[in-house]
């Protein structure tokens, strides 16, 4: 008796079906945990809703959240703070990360231990790192005030978390400390993939260390640099715990990034429609920035 339905995956014309079948569970899962919440978030952003519930009727469509958002000084301030954080933290992460990668890529005694030290901040949980830095920069009993006074840099204590500029600086320092090991590890991996022949040939041609760095190392690292830059930028963009635990976005919103603003509106003020609008705008900015960087990366190789 002939079967009513058969799926002959051995047939050359249907071989690709197996691939789709094997991918299907992963695609469904991604759809469920990423795409669906994203759709819900976009939907809520177009409703005037405080605390959102999925089992309640949909509120009328409105663009009020977006109108309010783009007219809000707080949003532009948070965007500016986020941009400053991205530029400063990414730049310092790259400089320190590349320098430490170059250092531990050399052969010297204790190299394994040095590599461990470089990677250590990356392994430390963010909240613990923040607590340590918060203690170091404590305004009344912190280590940094004591050190600066002893060294004669200041004659009175700095209220690190009561000064907008100082608080921003402390957040940047903590993020750089936490973020540079990732760059360092990626760069180290990139450095180890550069053939030694390139350097030997350059040496034969009389290139000095600086010329080898600029003409061989950096160009060879460009593919890794591009991807790392995007990942670091996205990390700074979405990082929440460092700022939230350290300053809560203050003082005077000096450290309020878009992610902190989203959280505050959603779970502090229970304005989930407005918070979703901030989240959607943040997502669009992230996608555009990532696309621009990834898109440009091949040209630089």
């Amino acid at each position: 008796m002939k079967p009513r339905f058969s799926l002959d995956l051995a047939r050359p014309s249907r071989r690709h079906w197996l691939g789709y079948l094997l991918l299907a569970p992963a695609v469904l899962l991604i759809g469920l945990i990423i795409i669906y919440p994203l759709i819900v978030s976009v939907d809520i952003s177009f409703q005037n809703v405080n605390i959102a519930r999925l089992d309640q009727p949909r509120r009328p469509f409105t663009t009020a959240n977006y109108e309010r958002l783009f007219a809000s000084g707080d949003f532009w301030n948070a965007s500016w703070v986020t941009l400053k954080l991205i530029v400063i933290v990414s730049l310092f992460c790259f400089v320190i990360g590349l320098a430490t990668a170059l250092l531990v890529n050399n052969k010297f005694k204790g190299r394994t231990f040095a590599r461990l030290l470089v990677a250590l901040p990356w392994a430390m949980p963010e909240v613990i790192a923040v607590v340590i830095f918060a203690w170091m920069f404590d305004s009344s009993f912190g280590l940094m005030n004591w050190v600066f006074i002893k060294l004669g840099f200041i004659d009175t204590t700095i209220n690190w978390f009561s000064s907008p500029a100082a608080a921003f600086a402390v957040v940047c320092i903590t993020m750089i400390w936490k973020g540079y090991p990732f760059v360092s590890i990626m760069m180290l991996a990139g450095l180890q993939s550069i053939p030694e022949d390139f350097y030997n040939a350059a040496r034969v041609d009389g290139a000095n260390a600086w010329q080898r760095l600029v003409n061989i190392t950096i160009p060879s690292l460009m593919p890794v640099l591009g991807v790392t830059l995007v990942l670091v930028m996205l990390w700074v963009f979405r990082d929440f715990s460092i700022i939230y635990v350290m300053t809560g976005g203050g003082p005077l919103k000096a450290t309020q990034s878009l992610s902190i603003m989203t959280y505050e509106q959603a779970f502090g003020f229970f304005k989930m429609g407005y918070a979703s609008a901030i989240g959607v705008v943040t997502l669009i900015i992230c996608v555009i920035a990532s696309r621009l960087m990834i898109g440009r990366a091949p040209d630089n190789i």
Partner: peptide, 17 residues
């Protein structure tokens, strides 16, 4: 209340800073 208390805190901080 949450928005109010946050606003008061920020304005008081501004007064001091």
């Amino acid at each position: 209340f949450n928005e109010f208390s946050k606003m008061v805190m920020e304005e008081a901080q501004r007064m001091i800073i």
